[in-house]
Amino acid sequence: MPEAFKPGCSRPQSGPVEEEKSEINMAGETSVKEGKKPMIKVGQKAPDFSAPAYCKGEFVEVKLSEYLGKWVVLCFYPGDFTFV
């Protein structure tokens, strides 16, 4: 489960956990990366990510895919010290 980290000036960054993909495919064609942004749809896999977190007195690194097997409520809000 979440791994603890020591807080400091440099700390884990939030961001996508990319699946392994090659820049060049078997046919020798160019990049699989296309400018298109993924659209979120129900029935589709939730994009994996990792992010630093504060949890019960500790700073930890959380990865969404560590929660496979459980129901997850992923809740975004504009800012701390506001309501949720």
Binding site: I40, Q44, K45, P47, W71, V72, L74, C75, Y77, P78
Partner: peptide, 24 residues
């Protein structure tokens, strides 16, 4: 996840339910 508001520099109030298989 399509809920970041670049103009305000904040995430809007998005809430996603993800099942045990990782499906939204």
């Amino acid at each position: 996840y399509g809920i970041y508001d670049g103009a305000g520099g904040v995430n809007t109030r998005g809430r996603f339910l993800i099942d045990p298989d990782g499906i939204i």
